[in-house]
Amino acid sequence: MTPFPSKLRDFLAHWYSVPLLLACWEIVSHSGWVQPRLVPSLMLIGQIFWRDLLSGVLIHHTTVTLYRALGGFLMAVVAGCTLGAAMARNRTIDALFEPIFSFGFPIPRIALYPVFIFIFGLGDASKIALVFLEGMFVITLHTYQGIRAVPNTMVWAGSSMGANSRQLFWRVLLPAALPMIFTGFRIALPVALIIVVSTEIIGESVGLGYYIQFASASFDDAKSLAGIAAVAIIGFALDRALIWLRNRAVFWQPEAVALG
């Protein structure tokens, strides 16, 4: 057998479920069992996506959403890594902050959004602040635990080879904690997107969440789905970008691209 058809077969064996589901969607859409308005055909969704992409509408909303998500996320990275490392290295800071983080962690912080609106206003700032807060929790805890979990033997090995505490931090602790820190990033980044889209759905006049909410409110499900597709694409792309970055930073311990 030539290699090509067998490759194609492997490909289908692995991916068949996606076209299968899309086909089911399409069948339902054309069947007349439900109103076609509620389950618009893929063709229609694609057309609207393409139309709004070319007209720049989608790009405009996407830029706003990305700006908010990445802005808050990057601030959370800086603050979370710093605080997490400080907590792991300094007993006083640890005693002061660790309880806040471990007790506060399971609390749904999105409920603070209405308060944030009053403090930061309706625009970008309140959303960035909420993303920052949410990301902070995840990243701080992962940095903290990552550094704390470095085995003593590794630290001892470093210091017996003459490293001072500064060198130990940058050359032993940080690299050893890096996989865990990146795990934190990988949890925080989709959360950033979730927060931004949710808050945009709750009340906004710009952003992908607003685009989706507005389309649904005007019973234009095809447009709403086009917006969802845009969110899906950036969510997927951000995740892949982060994995790419991670596998370069943590080159000694590659992570599978697929799940989790």
Binding site: A13, H14, W15, Y16, S17, V18, L21, L38, P190, L193, I194, V197, S198, I201, L208, G209, I212, Q213, A215, S216, A217, F219, D221, S224, L225, G227, I228, V231, A232, G235, F236, L238, D239, V257, A258, L259, G260
Partner: peptide, 24 residues
């Protein structure tokens, strides 16, 4: 084989974006 591609494609997508649609 059935779940893997679906989950790995849709996992990083914020499910909350579906909320308005699900309301309709």
């Amino acid at each position: 084989n059935f779940y893997d591609p679906i989950i790995s494609l849709t996992y990083p997508v914020p499910k909350i974006a579906l909320l308005p649609l699900i309301f309709t």
